[in-house]
Design a protein around this nucleic acid. Sequence first.
DNA 1: GTCTATATATTGATAGAC
DNA 2: GTCTATCAATATATAGAC
Lengths: 182, 182
Amino acid sequence: MRYQDGYKDQKRRELLKAAGAAAKKKGFAATGVDALAEAAGVTSGAVYAHFGSKAGLLDAVIVNEMERSRARWSRNPERSVETWAAEEVARYLSRAHIDHPESGCLMPALAADVARAAAPTRQVFEDQLKQAQREIAERLGEKDKAWQFLSQIVGAMVLARAVVSDDVQDEILAASRDAVTG
Amino acid sequence: MRYQDGYKDQKRRELLKAAGAAAKKKGFAATGVDALAEAAGVTSGAVYAHFGSKAGLLDAVIVNEMERSRARWSRNPERSVETWAAEEVARYLSRAHIDHPESGCLMPALAADVARAAAPTRQVFEDQLKQAQREIAERLGEKDKAWQFLSQIVGAMVLARAVVSDDVQDEILAASRDAVTG
DNA sequence: GTCTATATATTGATAGAC
DNA sequence: GTCTATCAATATATAGAC
């Protein structure tokens, strides 16, 4: 029983990771359950066995992705507020993050999908976002600063990904880095 | 000929407006061509006659929506930079804008769809975005300030729409208003 | 220019075998 | 728990009538 539970949980984690990456890359609404499952090497039946519905899968993806993101923020030891912010922002507002949404933050990739989801899904996201905001506020000192910080970096990534040229992408990221660190 | 051209152009505008509203509300990738056309009281045949493909429709929607947005920014006479920014931001970062994406800005609603579109579509968006940035930079003085301004308000709207509770939505918008005006 | 009808593919979800 | 097979619905796109 213990062994089976562990196996199920592990498979669930694999599915979540692969489906999350596929959703961030292609869009959640735009990607079928078959494709989401195939990304993890299983079929749609496995998705419904684990999550019940496509919406249920999105809820789980949100929790999984946001927790992973928070773990990354925290992993960086804070020598000072300035260096912490500068380092994290350099990682977030980078060309690598523009080019690889599948391994990046959920928010710029899927927030629009979440906005169109039903209330329970938005509640799941809200809980995760508030937790992120709290942890950033602890570092930056003020509550409002954290919201401004989050809006700034998410907005910059959303806009940078929507344009074609490297030059404009770089302009947007550079300006935004200045806004949150300088 | 002149009359027919005028009629065609008018129908095209009607279609663009209705399809744009439907896309902003439900998502572009998530909405079928039939539904996009039905929003304008026509069928999918009309869409293909005017725009050739679903992608062609998105290109036209981007131009139409971004031009309308710029026209609104400009309509407000600038008595001073501060009052202009404060007024426009109050309109943008408002509950009405959260609740009615169909009549709001294209960017928070569709930038993620644009980011996943082919290069020509992203080029169309880039041209429009640069124009918007230029006009805002003229008012704010600095180029970078305009990018920061745009990233801030788009990011705030994206996040505010993705959460459920009015309280958190208000927190996000209030903080963001402070960032760009205060 | 717009309609209806249609073609082919894919959607979210379920049933039953194993 | 995961598979294959399958359901009705919908996807993008085209063809031909008017």
